[in-house]
Design a protein around this nucleic acid. Structure first.
Length: 430
RNA sequence: GCCGCCGUAGCUCAGACCGGUAGAGCGGCUGGCUGUUAACCAGUCGGUCGUCGGUUCAAGUCCGACCGGCGGCGCCA
């Protein structure tokens, strides 16, 4: 029996047993009000002095915030109770009596304090809601891809070299040698598509960049689908279908959590196919008209992304960036070799990039040339070049940042709340 | 890496401009209250003012360095 079933009205009038933690206790002398969390929701439980054995009433008096307990009682509908339902306690057992110095007060805290107590902070209703939505987003990604015949082929965390250069990687000792924490599983799913056709990896990725912004973590999760015999347009189509599916799933299954977050869901309801599309060149013109100092050839910065994102009600693809601003493996546009067949998907409401994707170079000679142009060590990429030697095919893929997606769907001001234990440039504890 | 802001009670902050030995609310604890909604009421405990150095008769307050954190930019998902 769970609190969520009580709140859904399924157990009204029934006897229930709830196992959980004491969120808060109020008393009016003869009546004690216990707010209990069981992992599925919060419920008020009441104890009346003249309705229970004196020792139960006294036991309840001892309860401190976050003590764990088991209660039995009957469920009644009562407008005075938060959530509209409450449990009238007949039996109560303290599982563990916490000391009366729970660090998190019921009032406000600073972010530094909260992050230092993340292990307790995640018990709060708001954090519960965010983490539940995160779990739903992850499940939606996997269901979507699994249902379309993608095979999960996870990429290694320890890697011998960078995907796009070595400066941003965490270096770790590896039995007298050096290894790096992965920055992306993309190169590896480019290999597994020759095994299964359509594959994806899903796992943590690491960036040692000293990015100090509300949208960066040093450790974050990406889902990276890759498709053989797939061109640029087909790739975009999969992306917009997947993002639409994710948003619809969360709206469908996690509306209670969105309510806890006071998330206005009207903008989310507008996420429908097809998404908007503008070229990089059009984006630059749009920005210049709006007064931004930007020249063709420069990559888009955070204020640029924010502006573009705010011009559309739906997610928008910005495609065909200058080749020099993007990664070495991206396929040049046959109609204009100065740009590559890539697209970043900008979430609306000012959130900016949540997906980066592209068609990959499948021609061996061109790829070798690009590795040279980018000053990358060819030896490290020999295995990757093999994929162009033995049965190379046009192929495309993308990476969707889980935390950025959750941040947008929950409309959060900072990405650090989207993951149970965030790792940022200033924080590896707890 | 760059620019800006902040470190005072367990927490959130005031006191700093104008130097004279520290205050509130919340939390904790004790007591009261038979329907509370971050309950309320009364009482009570609680501080080497981030660290080091300097100026001064006197520094939480002025000056310098350092440490820690936050916000924005850059880089990126």
């Amino acid at each position: 029996m769970s609190v969520s079933e009580i709140l859904d009205g399924k157990l009204t009038g029934k006897e229930v047993e709830i196992k959980g933690w004491l969120v808060n206790k109020r008393s009016s002398g003869g009546v004690q009000f216990l707010i209990i969390r069981d992992g599925t929701g919060l419920i008020q439980a009441t104890i009346h002095k003249n309705e229970v054995a004196p020792e139960i009433f006294e036991e309840a008096k001892k309860l401190t915030q976050e003590s764990s307990l088991t209660i039995r009682g009957s469920v009644v509908e009562d407008k005075r109770a938060p959530g509209g339902y409450e449990v009238r306690i007949s039996e109560l057992k303290i599982v563990h009596l916490a000391p009366g110095d729970y660090p998190l007060a019921k009032k406000e805290h600073g972010i530094d304090f909260l992050l230092n107590h993340r292990q307790l902070w995640i018990r709060s209703p708001r954090q519960m809601a965010i983490l539940r939505i995160r779990a739903e987003v992850v499940k939606a990604c996997r269901d979507f891809l699994d249902d379309r015949g993608f095979v999960l082929t996870d990429a290694p965390i320890f890697t011998p070299s960078a995907v796009e250069g070595t400066t941003t990687l965490f270096e770790v000792p590896y039995f007298g040698d050096k290894a790096y924490l992965t920055q992306s599983g993309q190169l590896y799913v480019e290999a597994t598509i020759a095994t299964f056709g359509k594959t994806y990896c899903f796992g943590p990725t690491f960036r040692a960049e000293k990015s100090k912004t509300p949208r960066h973590l040093t450790e974050f999760w990406m889902v990276e689908p890759e498709m053989a015999f797939c061109g640029f347009e087909e790739n975009l189509k999969l992306q917009e279908e997947m993002v639409t599916y994710i948003v619809k799933t969360v709206l469908d299954k996690r509306c209670r959590e969105l309510e806890v977050l006071k998330r206005d869901i009207k903008p989310l309801r507008k996420v429908e196919l097809p998404f908007e599309r503008i070229s990089y060149t059009e984006a630059v013109e749009m920005l210049q008209k709006a007064g931004f100092q930007i020249e063709w050839g420069e990559d888009l910065g955070a204020p640029h992304e924010r502006y573009i994102s705010l011009q559309f009600e739906k997610p928008v693809f910005v495609h065909r960036y200058p080749a020099k601003a993007k990664a070495f493996y991206m396929q040049p546009d046959p109609e204009n070799p100065n740009v590559v067949l890539c697209a970043d998907l900008m979430a609306p409401e000012g959130y900016g990039e949540i997906i980066g994707g592209s068609q990959r170079i499948h021609d061996l000679k061109l790829l070798e040339q690009r590795i040279k142009e980018f000053g990358l060590p060819k030896e490290a990429y020999e295995w990757y070049l093999d994929l162009r030697r033995y049965g190379s095919v046009p192929h495309s893929g993308f990476g969707l940042g889980i935390e950025r997606t959750v941040m947008w769907i929950c409309k959060l001001k900072h990405i650090r709340e989207t993951i149970p234990f965030p790792r940022t440039i200033t924080r590896v504890y707890p």
